[in-house]
Simulated assay, not measured.
Amino acid sequence: MTQIALITGASRGLGAALAQALAPTHHIVAVARTTGALEELDDHIQAAGGSATLAPMDITDTAAMQTLCRGIYDRWGRLDMWLHTAIHAAPLSPASFVDAKDWDKSVAVNATATSTLIGYVAPLLGSEGRAVFFDDDRAGEKFFGAYGATKAAQMALARSWAAETVKTGPRVRILSPRPMPTAVRARFFPGEPRAPLNAPASEASRLLAEL
């Protein structure tokens, strides 16, 4: 029976690397807003003999997420794994100057959409599926107010869900990626030398091994 993995935020960085790493053993349901990047990911997956379903959607669109999860249920009846890498990286700024639009988008993507997706995905994972979240502990660091606060909210949701499902499933894990040369990190640390950072492909392999 084909294993099904949903990856939210699959078009670039760690999400794309996880999709390619899982493709030999899973059918990938790849969700991201950028159609072109998803198509490029699909080319890599197919070239390696895997298969994917592309879902160019915004995770803050509740109706789209309902449609996605209903489509997964109608086609396969379940999910075996959900890996949530989607994130909004608000520009760095002092807490007293956080832009209202950046704050609202950070809350919508990093916290509200995560909460909504947990409710939609949990029935698909059942008792045996696995949900995986990725920590980035910036809460309280200077200039990381919007990102740090909303990423911390996301992790709090994940930790609560993990504690609530220890006996019933699904199995919820929170993993800690090492620094990678991703677009998110480049936004936070422009001009940082990229060579010492960890390649997303190697990090994807390391993180999946932890599971």
Rank of each mutant, 00 (worst) to 15 (best):
M1G: 09
T2V: 11
T2W: 00
Q3N: 14
I4Q: 14
A5D: 11
L6A: 11
L6V: 12
I7V: 14
A10L: 07
S11E: 08
L14I: 06
L14G: 05
A17N: 06
L18K: 00
Q20C: 14
A21T: 12
P24Y: 07
T25R: 14
H27Q: 14
V29R: 01
V31F: 06
T35W: 09
T35P: 04
A37F: 10
A37K: 10
A37C: 00
E40A: 15
L41F: 09
H44D: 14
H44S: 15
Q46T: 10
A47D: 12
A48E: 09
A52L: 00
T53F: 00
L54T: 05
A55R: 14
M57D: 01
M57S: 02
D61F: 04
D61N: 05
D61A: 09
T62Y: 09
T62Q: 12
A64S: 15
A64E: 09
A64L: 09
M65K: 01
T67E: 10
R70K: 13
I72A: 01
I72F: 02
I72G: 10
D74P: 07
W76T: 06
M81Y: 01
W82H: 13
L83M: 15
L83V: 12
H84L: 06
H84W: 13
I87G: 02
A89H: 04
P91M: 14
L92F: 04
F97R: 14
V98T: 14
D99C: 07
A100H: 08
A100Q: 12
D104T: 14
S106L: 11
A108I: 08
N110Y: 00
N110Q: 01
A111P: 02
T112L: 13
S115M: 04
L117I: 13
L117N: 15
I118K: 05
G119T: 00
Y120N: 10
A122M: 12
L124E: 10
L124K: 01
L125E: 10
G129N: 07
A131D: 08
F134M: 06
F134H: 07
F134G: 03
D136S: 13
R138V: 08
R138Y: 13
A146Y: 01
Y147D: 06
Y147W: 07
A149G: 03
Q154T: 03
A156V: 00
L157M: 13
A158I: 12
W161V: 06
A163M: 08
E164F: 05
T165V: 03
V166G: 02
K167H: 14
T168W: 02
P170C: 09
V172I: 15
R173Q: 11
I174Y: 05
I174L: 15
S176R: 15
R178D: 13
P179W: 00
M180Q: 15
P181E: 11
T182V: 04
T182K: 02
A186T: 02
G191S: 09
A195E: 15
P196L: 04
N198P: 02
P200K: 00
E203P: 12
R206T: 13
A209F: 01
